[in-house]
């Protein structure tokens, strides 16, 4: 007995849904291509910038140093995206200063200052491949704009922190020991 083939029914609603989904895919593709397209022209594969990380626990910092995780050449990644940003060029730590309270002086009051016993303010210079957006004349490293005040989600082995750029396009300076 011959069984009848079931006819595939394709109606107007199905067509509209397919067109709508294709339009969404096309728009997403267009925006993604724009996002990943390298910015206009020139790059700098020895671009150096300095970041600041505040209130780093002294013990944690000292142990990172002992483990050699702050040596020149250590890979730095973006803690959010996991992408490689660059490598450590130099790292230094200064004791954190805290401000608060009033101290009388001849003109009235000044703000009290105290050196923190257990925290550092850390400055890390990172060497990276940077691309320059010629129209805006700014450098970017993995879509991070190399501008003072820009946030960097810093990550090395065993340590992550939110940092801010304090200096860009640095010329050669003494490396960390």
């Amino acid at each position: 007995m011959v069984q009848k083939r079931k006819k595939v029914r394709f109606n107007l609603v199905d067509m509209l849904i397919v067109i709508f989904i294709l339009a969404i895919i096309a728009a997403a593709t267009y925006f993604l291509i724009g996002y990943f397209k390298p910015d206009a022209n020139s790059g700098n594969n020895d671009f150096k910038f300095k970041i600041r990380i505040e209130n780093v626990n002294k013990e944690s910092w000292d142990s990172l140093k002992e483990l050699g995780l702050l040596n020149t050449g250590t890979i730095v990644k973006d803690a959010v995206t996991g992408e490689e940003i660059g490598t450590i060029y130099a790292a230094e730590a200064k004791e954190s200063l805290h401000y608060g309270g009033l101290i009388p002086d001849e003109n009235g009051y000044i703000l009290g200052t105290a050196v923190s016993e257990d925290e550092y303010t850390v400055y890390i210079t990172i060497s990276a491949d940077a691309e320059q957006d010629n129209s805006r004349k700014i450098y970017k490293v993995n879509h991070i704009r190399m501008l003072i005040g820009e946030t960097v989600h810093f990550k090395i082995k065993s340590f992550t922190a939110t940092a801010y750029i304090v200096e860009t396009n640095i010329s050669d300076e003494p490396k960390s020991p």
Binding site: Y99, G101, L102, G108, Y109, I110, L111, T113
Partner: peptide
């Protein structure tokens, strides 16, 4: 400029050095 309380609990305006 920031506001901090003095010894009498009165807010005083002082300059932040940094």
């Amino acid at each position: 400029k920031i506001l901090e309380k003095d010894e009498n609990g009165i807010l005083q305006s002082v300059i932040h050095p940094e």
